[in-house]
């Protein structure tokens, strides 16, 4: 008993020491979500730190995507969903009635599991957000935003000669990078990614992962993934969800080498899930 306490204390100290100094960008405080009568998330406390990649892992149906969708209020689009607790972005409650959800989503962008380019040209796909939010005063500025976004998404070289072709004509990996470019074009502060590589082949996955690592310079990223290797490769912090509860959260290297919770241990070694 005594030994156990000592061990967990030691771990806590270790965790505190490993924690880098980046400020907290988003914070979830006792977040609960109900879909109709079914509770999907139970009192989750999780911090997302600036310019870091936070990976959410856990078996299917554990609530990690639900939590992700709370961060830019995409759960609002589901009629039966009710969100409780408090989520802040730069210490501002995003569920405050004074907050405009449209503005929030411009600050917290999202990339989805399946690439979902609009049935428009590549250019129009990227220009969609800037047009809606009036980010460009004229065509030249818009052109610049589109080019920069495509460059940041590492798609410029492949797409620059076919900007007027439909975005749906790209390959799966290119489509996903187009969706990332589309999200970047709105100049968000946080980018949420919901299993962005699950529909991609390994080569496209590698490109997107490389891109995520580069994007960390300028953005805060939260990524949901089913791939342990991906979480280990791209994230600095990892949060493990199970059955709607946050099991544990910490620096990725610690989570993968020396997790506190047996369930995390079992999950990352593939013994359940």
């Amino acid at each position: 008993m005594n030994i156990m306490t000592e061990k967990s204390l030691e771990d806590a100290v270790n965790a505190e020491m490993n924690r880098p100094n980046e400020p907290i960008k988003m914070r979830g405080d006792q977040v609960t979500v109900h879909y109709g009568d079914k509770q999907a998330l139970f009192g989750v406390n999780l911090d997302v730190r600036q310019n870091q990649v936070t990976a959410l892992i856990g078996p299917s149906g554990c609530g990690k995507s639900t939590f992700l969708r709370c961060l830019n209020r995409m759960n609002d689009t589901i009629d039966s969903a009710r969100v409780g607790g408090k989520i802040t972005l730069d210490s501002e409650d995003i569920y405050d009635p004074k907050i405009d959800v449209v503005e929030l989503r411009a600050r917290v962008g999202m990339v989805f599991q399946k690439p979902n380019p609009f049935p428009k040209s590549i250019y129009e796909n990227v220009a969609y957000g800037p047009r809606i939010h009036g980010l460009a005063k004229n065509k030249a500025e818009l052109d610049e935003i589109v080019e920069k976004s495509l460059q940041k998404a590492a798609l410029w070289n492949e797409a620059k000669d076919r900007l007027n072709e439909p975005g749906t004509g790209l390959s799966g990996g290119q489509q996903q990078r187009l969706c990332i470019a589309r999200a970047i074009a709105v100049a968000p502060e946080v980018i949420l990614m919901d299993e962005p590589c699950s529909a991609l082949d390994p080569i496209a996955t590698a490109k997107v992962e490389e891109l995520i690592d580069e994007l960390r310079e300028n953005y805060t990223i939260v990524i949901v993934t089913h791939s342990m290797q991906q979480a280990a490769r791209v994230s600095q912090r990892t949060a493990m969800f199970h059955l709607g509860y946050l099991v544990e959260e910490g620096p990725t290297d610690k989570m993968f080498t020396n997790p506190d919770d047996k369930r995390t241990q079992d999950y990352i070694t593939g013994r359940f899930g």
Partner: peptide
Amino acid sequence: PRAMRDGSLGLGAT
């Protein structure tokens, strides 16, 4: 597809 709506709403479109 719902993905189209989500994609647009996720970019902050009304």
